[in-house]
């Protein structure tokens, strides 16, 4: 394994109802440091399941995931330690509604990383400034727009200084006019060299920011290549028909 490897997925399977439903049916993929891997595919193709398996929110039925060289699917691995290094952003934001924005962002660093309150708040404020929301630090999530919520969710994950950021359809629950502000933050993040795995329907983002695009269907990776190849000269018929519908 080379030094550049961050996540290595080996023959990952996720079955439901004792194998009746195969959400993931033998997926292997490598994610290198600094890469932006965009996962696309029709709904039900297993792309979200794939992403959620990466930090074991879904426990795979079979297969292995090596993260920083550790097999996190091993029952003896303390997954909590590794999840600290994997930021996750959800479709429905999942901010903590009973905490202010600042508390949302600092509870992880304070309780898990044992940072001092001052240090955690200073870091959070710096991140809020970067996404232009420093004036909302004391607001509660219910007082924010969808786009603001998702930007907060991104910086909340960044507060843990993750090695990789996992995005699960981060713009799918947003009003169209708020998609841009979230994508801008993600683009900025990608430019700064953050390793990202993004499940999305935003083909423009995939083409512009992605270093690699994975096309999934029926629990399998059908095609995997640079964005220009995926979008301009797709090989498989399944990808061709998918792109015809979404572009």
């Amino acid at each position: 394994m080379n030094d550049n490897m961050l996540i290595s997925v080996l023959n990952l399977k996720k079955y439901y109802k004792g194998g009746e439903i195969k959400a993931l049916d033998g997926v292997s993929a490598d994610i290198h440091k600094g890469e932006v891997v965009v996962v696309i595919g029709p709904s039900g193709s297993g792309k979200s399941t794939f992403l959620r398996c990466l930090n074991l929110l879904e426990v795979p039925t079979d297969g292995h995931i090596l993260f920083n060289g550790t097999d996190i699917t091993d029952a003896k691995t303390d997954i909590n330690v590794h999840r600290q290094k994997m930021g996750m952003v959800f479709q429905h934001f999942n901010l903590f509604p009973h905490m202010t924005v600042l508390k949302n962002m600092t509870i992880g660093p304070i309780k898990i990383l044992k940072k001092s309150k001052d240090e955690a708040e200073a870091q959070a404020m710096a991140l809020l400034k970067r996404v232009g929301l420093e004036d909302r630090a004391s607001a509660y999530p219910s007082q924010l727009s969808g786009g603001q919520k998702q930007r907060i969710a991104i910086v909340r994950a960044l507060c843990m200084n993750p090695d990789v950021m996992l995005f699960d359809e981060p713009t799918s629950a947003l009003d169209p006019e708020m998609v841009g502000e979230v994508l801008d933050v993600m683009k900025q993040l990608a430019r700064e060299g953050m390793t990202m795995v993004v499940v999305t329907h935003e083909m423009g983002f995939a083409r512009e920011v992605g270093s690699r695009v994975i096309f999934m269907d029926e629990g399998k990776i059908v095609e995997e290549n640079q964005p220009s190849v995926i979008f301009d000269s797709p090989e498989s018929d399944r990808l061709k028909s998918f792109l015809k519908k979404v572009l």
Binding site: L57, N80, R83, N94, F96
Partner: peptide, 18 residues
């Protein structure tokens, strides 16, 4: 409580109890 709250907590690195 929405399952997403649990997922958000766990994905930050909190254990089940925390």
């Amino acid at each position: 409580i929405d399952i997403g709250q649990n997922e958000a907590g766990r994905s930050l690195g909190f254990g089940y109890v925390a």
